[in-house]
Design a protein around this nucleic acid. Sequence first.
DNA 1: ACTTTGCGTCAATGCTGTTGACATAAGGCG
DNA 2: CGCCTTATGTCAACAGCATTGACGCAAAGT
Lengths: 234, 234
Amino acid sequence: MSTRAPRQPQRRRPTRSGVLLSEELITDTALRLIGEHGPEALSVRRLGAALGCDPSALYRYFRNTDDLLLAIADRIIGDAMDGFTPGPDWVASLREMASRVRAGYLAHPRAAAMAAYRVTRRENEIRAVEAGVGLMLSAGFPPPEAVRLYLAFIDTVLSHAALDASCVALPRQQREADQRAWTEAYQAVDPEAFPALTTVRGELRRLGESSFDEAVDLLLAALAARAPGKAART
Amino acid sequence: MSTRAPRQPQRRRPTRSGVLLSEELITDTALRLIGEHGPEALSVRRLGAALGCDPSALYRYFRNTDDLLLAIADRIIGDAMDGFTPGPDWVASLREMASRVRAGYLAHPRAAAMAAYRVTRRENEIRAVEAGVGLMLSAGFPPPEAVRLYLAFIDTVLSHAALDASCVALPRQQREADQRAWTEAYQAVDPEAFPALTTVRGELRRLGESSFDEAVDLLLAALAARAPGKAART
DNA sequence: ACTTTGCGTCAATGCTGTTGACATAAGGCG
DNA sequence: CGCCTTATGTCAACAGCATTGACGCAAAGT
């Protein structure tokens, strides 16, 4: 393959503005750009400008923008999972994984919204998969089920975290308007046509809140109920 | 607001090629374009070409491409839930809702991927919430819990559907590369450092599949286990 | 028939990612 | 130390993108 992009350049040369480029510096700057000016602020040209280098220099470090995006995603994963070690209680450990992923995504909401559904196939992601699958195995699930259930778990966590991140990434006004909608627009529905909504009218504001914890709790409860260790006890 | 885009033009004039434009014709053609030539085929220019009009004519009907995508998304929701009526079996009904949402999203993945995280607070959405909350109430959950659990359910369904749609919406090459990652990059890991991955190595390709059904099943199982009707029987 | 004005068309602007040629300096080697 | 290779930053160019403002035609209202 002649077109591969070297991950670790050996002959780094300062740019016109004196900066020494590196994969880490580039992803850092990209995350800062996205955080400050929104996801649409991330373009090769703007990133080059922010780094003080020619835009095309980035192609010495990443094959294309998708490759760059995956690197950013992997970095978020790495930051979130930094220092995590699975404990003996597999349910509690999975819950902590979920919590960490969510925190990592919320720390970079706009970048997370772009990268949540990608497979980075890089170091940090691989380590996270190892930890999650290991927990499923330690719960007593046989390999095929362990993989399937881990996937269901991590997809729920990732997609819920992305959902939360997307909401946080919305402009302030729009987010508040969405929140108000539940306590305003939905209060005035016709009782005849919408009996259920009328019954729960006082609780509807909860629809604007995050369901992350509830969903994770439900999923972990279902997993615990299905775990072989549990069945063996009866 | 002086820049609003009229939804129902009053003086339609045939284009150079003789077509009478309309919002419906435009969304139809957009969905057809996506369906026939892949998600990346949707651009203002190509859409104009497919319609036989100048690209800029579309701006008489939609403020911008985002507005166009929302119109498409609204249509997808309506189509997906068309004809749905909750039945007596609340678990089966919720499962059908989930299935319908997913099918609707997957039929038009790119539009769905972009619009999934928004609150439309329009007619179709309100009807869906009414149906879902009604099912939770019929399961015996008191109002506060019914709302919380419905939210956890629908967020899981929506975000999983969006996850699936996002993968399908990826350009072909990227999607295949993501899929290949599980059977290539993940096969070669060091057995010492990654014992769990090594154990389940043969099953890893499942990580590229959708976890939608598994996640919905787990969630519905947890809901059924928590339903008051069930507890009353013991 | 005349006026108003909605709407399709044209041309132009400033973005975007990506590539190939080029030059220059880093680092190995004598 | 000085030469050579080549990695790497720079430059210029291309095709495609969304969007906009001016313009003129034709449809609708009177």
